[in-house]
């Protein structure tokens, strides 16, 4: 067995390279305008962008299946509340807190998958309804003011740097992206998922249990969104209702910057990571320029339109 085809799989795609170019351009602009943009600062940006980055991977995985997950933001918010409540500020509860949070995440994913596969509800509507149910459930459960907090010793996950050089959250992010890459490109299950996303009918005719692959993808997506929510909780240290709501559209915008297509069958973890980083830096730029928060939403929409328009233009050429 030759390794060459596997190595070929790892070669970054044109879309990822374009995203990389965009990131370099953005950094050069920052360097020119502020005169002081260091590698340290870039890593610090990456540290804070990690929750978004992991949620973008979740969205990219569902986009690979030719579907859309509009519940990633709500799921990350759910993780935030469950984690803070079960932690209750005490590091001794770490086992139950993490287990409970992940179980909730998996349950959301399983429900999404069953709604889509068994009840045949279009994914974007099933997940939209799911986000409404989660938001309502959180309000009922917490009465609008969630309790609990994240202990300081757990917040090291996002606040700490390994030997003062590399932030922990960047390591987690890279690890997740790497594992997903391996899953999609090097395991049979991953190949089956990718093929189901590219062409459901053809996959089914070739004996792939595509329905199971869709459920698996939704469970993975919710699990990743939960992980993003856990990292986000480590940054904020407390529970806030609706804290992750804007991540849903953010994740779509970042994924399309990274070359994701709505037709499915494409998974570009490097592009997704770069897209998340670009979006995060753009958003902090808006903050630095003291533009009103409204500008963030306009940018979200504009990015989606421009990125998809460019992708379509290229296809026609």
């Amino acid at each position: 067995m030759s390794l060459a085809p596997f190595i070929a799989q790892l070669r970054p795609s044109a879309a990822s390279l374009r995203a990389l170019g965009l990131l370099v351009l953005l950094l050069a602009l920052l360097l020119v305008s502020s005169g002081a943009f260091s590698g340290q600062q870039l890593l610090d940006n990456a540290r804070q962008a990690a929750p978004l980055g992991i949620i973008v991977l979740a969205q990219a995985l569902i986009l690979m299946m030719g579907r859309l997950d509009l519940s990633v933001g709500a799921t990350a918010g759910l993780a935030n509340v469950v984690l803070a409540t079960s932690f209750a500020g005490d590091m001794a509860n770490i086992g139950t807190a993490l287990a409970l949070t992940l179980i909730f995440g998996l349950a959301v994913g399983l429900a999404n998958g069953l709604l889509v596969v068994v009840l045949r509800i279009p994914a974007f509507l099933a997940t939209l309804a799911m986000s409404l149910i989660i938001a309502g459930g959180l309000l009922v459960f917490t009465g609008g003011s969630p309790r609990g907090s994240i202990p300081a010793s757990f917040r090291v996950v996002t606040e700490g740097w390994i030997a003062g050089v590399l932030p922990w959250s960047v390591v987690v992010w890279a690890l997740v992206a790497g594992l997903l890459s391996v899953l999609v490109h090097f395991t049979m299950t991953g190949r089956r998922m990718l093929l189901s996303g590219a062409n459901m009918r053809a996959a089914r005719l070739n004996g792939i249990a595509s329905d199971r692959m869709v459920i698996l993808a939704f469970m993975l997506s919710s699990l990743l969104a939960t992980l993003g929510g856990i990292l986000l909780s480590a940054i904020t240290g407390m529970a806030t209702i609706g804290i992750a709501d804007s991540y849903t559209v953010d994740s779509i915008a970042a994924a399309v910057i990274g070359g994701a297509l709505f037709s499915g069958g494409v998974f570009l973890p490097l592009g997704a990571a770069l897209g998340a980083l670009i979006l995060f830096i753009l958003q902090s730029l808006l903050y630095v320029l003291s533009l009103p928060p409204a500008a963030k939403f306009i940018m979200q929409g504009a990015i989606i339109v421009v990125a998809l328009a460019l992708a379509n233009l290229k296809k026609e050429r």
Binding site: V249, F262, P293, A294, F297, G301, I304, V305, L308
Partner: peptide, 15 residues
Amino acid sequence: VMSLATAAIVKGVTL
């Protein structure tokens, strides 16, 4: 997706 993008832009303009 286009209507989602419009929604984000309109939300920004409204804010």
